[in-house]
Design a protein around this nucleic acid. Structure first.
Lengths: 198, 198
DNA sequence: CCCTTGTTGTAACACTTGTTATATAACGAA
DNA sequence: TTCGTTATATAACAAGTGTTACAACAAGGG
């Protein structure tokens, strides 16, 4: 009976607008008004699709996560063991403008998960997934004989994640002046040591 | 003629209050009103000692930096080479409640240096210092014969800093549930590989 | 054609922020 | 004591926030 509009797709429009705003204006400037405007609406429309701002932001961050996960799953399917690990981690590392913006989002998420319980939960979930993914590739390396069975999978995964996150931070702090080649060289040095025959 | 009050020491009072507020309430809740109240005054008094809020915050962060630097210099003086590196990095790693709070501040600083040019400058300066400190200890290791001359000092320092920063992030995300022993074990694994005889 | 129902825009609300203006209090010099 | 200067408190201001209330609108069914 009433005016017909695809609820789900309109929601997606707002989520996309929120993503763009986050990337281009930063977290602090991502207000409901700004997002609504970018989507071509006003706050009146936006609030019909999201309970509150936090939900909108969480959906947007979810969108980033999904994108990244899909890229990684693709790499994981095509490769295995050390090669897969190398590819997945290299994809996560900040090597171009796009990943630089992704890292800005991550940092904002880290920071704000201090305040919002829901966000912290979401963030923990994502970390677990990320650790699990790396752990699985390390286990595969053990099965393939690339790594000795004595390697402590969980600790190694944690260390790897720390390495990646730290490089992300440094990249942002260095005003993105860290050349991709250097970052990848550091990754290879790291992997060479991890995979060194004892 | 006028009422006498030690300008410098009163300033320090406010700076200390700002530090405490940052640590206990977090960056977002560190308002001029909150800091003034904690110092036992109101905003009217505070603004007589600082041009604006940004200056106050920068002074407070400076205070943290100075504290940490002094601790590190002490360790650097007492030890040398690998032992010094291990001690300094272990001190920086998040192993107790105090360092946890310090890491919260660091993350806030990272995040907000996206917006304030002055803060970003301050932050860059601190990173350079931190990289320089580690580089010097690595060079000392080379001189002591602990490391081969072929090691790429700058890249290794960067990797080390990344490792530390990443662990700091993970510590915060894990709700400080990462036991100190595990973190130190990861550091030692890292150092063992770096200092392994080829 | 009208009416119902979901959509959207407008505007107000309540609150918080940093900053500024101004009044009051304190204290030493004259 | 009185005055002048400074320190401090109080209060207002302007801007910006998320949220809410409400009116206007659109479009398909009767």
């Amino acid at each position: 009976m009433p005016r017909i509009v695809d609820h789900a797709s309109r929601r997606q429009d707002f989520i996309r607008a929120a993503c763009e705003t986050l990337l281009e204006e930063g977290y602090a400037n991502t207000t409901v008004r700004a997002v609504a405007k970018r989507a071509g609406f006003t706050t009146g429309a936006l609030v019909h699709y999201f309970g509150d701002k936090d939900e909108l932001i969480r959906r947007a961050l979810d969108y980033f996560g999904t994108e990244q996960r899909e890229r990684m799953l693709r790499l994981e399917r095509e490769l295995e063991g050390r090669a897969a690990l190398r590819a997945v981690v290299a994809d996560a590392l900040p090597t171009d403008l796009d990943s630089q913006r992704r890292w800005r989002i991550w940092m904002a998420l880290w920071y704000h998960s201090e305040e919002s319980d829901q966000m912290r939960a979401e963030q923990k979930r994502r970390y677990r997934e990320w650790l699990g993914r790396i752990s699985r590739m390390l286990e595969q390396s053990v099965k393939l004989g690339e790594l000795p069975a004595s390697v402590e999978i969980r600790a190694e995964a944690r260390a790897m994640v720390a390495f990646v996150d730290g490089l992300g931070v440094q990249f942002l702090m260095a005003n993105s002046r860290l050349p991709a080649a250097k970052i990848l060289a550091m990754l290879d040095t790291y992997l060479n040591r991890l995979y060194a025959k004892p």
